[in-house]
Design a protein around this nucleic acid. Structure first.
Lengths: 193, 193
DNA sequence: CAGCTTGGCTAGCGGTGCTAGAATCACGGT
DNA sequence: ACCGTGATTCTAGCACCGCTAGCCAAGCTG
């Protein structure tokens, strides 16, 4: 009876262990270094146990991504509400955009799992991860006071795409890093009023 | 003497063969299906000949990407100059943006090689592929008449990032495809006047 | 014609994600 | 107290990957 509980608890703990190990490995050495063998060694189990928790490597990456969504949403929320928000909406938007960029820059591997890989997650549908939706909402609420637009969702998606493009292109060396702040300022300015 | 010439010519032809085979395979089945074995079988040579032409799989993808840059530049140029350009710059910009989006949608694998993989190409430097620079120039010239901005290069980079983000996020299912035209219109509108 | 150089091939290395089947452990019933 | 049973973990291996060493057969040169 209670033994069953303990089993389940230990199993859940091991699952967490897998996800955090995958994330740390990815963040320190990139996703190419995250192999099932390496991951198994890291958690001190054999390879097949990974497959008793996840259907495959993609599912592990997806789990890491979900973790990232929550953190991103939290950081965006903090940026929006702590940045002297109500009285200065323009500043709040700049703060949120900077927080987004900072997140992508600080955790490139995590950002990658969230937005350029792990396609088997539901995104633009009703059962998208809750944290993902919260992150999107933060962007939208930051934009709401500064724009005059009938379709705020579409506008937010477009602004988000701009941020995403800026960051992925810069990360892959397509854009000069030195001018990042200028580009970010242009994007924000273009999406204000 | 002439034999040497023939040898070089045949070798160049075979190199072309490799690149087009890689491209066709990628476009029809995705880059995951493009393995060195598969590619070798396709061109009816053994694997090692690939390595006498290219340093590795990445270099082959880079060659495919360069091909893509030329085509994209040509399509953008056509869109800009054929779309009743001088008298209606706003329409010309919309046409160029639509051509860019169309290219990415029509040849996702090619677009991928150009802008989300093959990082060993020089981009934001003096010796970037010429075709890449030409494509960027088309975007800039399409933007020039409709914006009032001191730093046109930075603005173009930002607009380009917006397009890129829109397309990559949609391709991976992050954005609803039905609203693509609305988002594109928002982006263009935000980067006009 | 002999010798050498060039170029393509076969075979193989170390790695990948993933899985079948053996082995081990903890449990419940007699 | 013991033994069968079921779950759980491991060993070993599959088919594939990018890439390369070394052989072998052509063809050019003296």
């Amino acid at each position: 009876m209670s033994i069953q509980k303990r089993r389940e608890r230990e199993r859940a703990e091991r699952e967490r262990l897998i996800v955090t190990a995958a994330r740390e490995l990815a963040e320190s050495e990139g996703w190419n270094a995250v192999t099932t063998r390496r991951l198994a060694a890291e958690i001190e189990y054999s390879q097949p146990v990974l497959y008793s928790h996840f259907s495959g490597k993609d599912a592990i990456m997806a789990a890491v991504a979900v973790e990232g969504f929550a953190e991103l949403a939290a950081e965006l929320c903090r940026a929006r509400t702590e940045a002297a928000a109500p009285e200065d909406p323009a500043r709040a938007l700049a703060s949120v955009a900077a927080a987004y960029a900072d997140f992508a820059e600080r955790r490139p591997a995590l950002y990658d799992a969230m937005f350029t890989q792990a396609v088997d997650l539901p995104f633009a549908s009703a059962d998208a991860p809750d944290a993902l939706r919260r992150g999107f909402d933060e962007l939208r609420e930051a934009l709401r006071p500064v724009v005059d637009e009938d379709n705020l969702d579409v506008l937010t998606e477009t602004f988000w795409s701009g941020l995403h493009g800026l960051l992925t292109l810069m990360r892959d060396g397509r854009l000069r890093r030195e001018q990042h702040d200028l580009r970010l300022a242009v994007l924000i300015r273009r999406f204000s009023t």
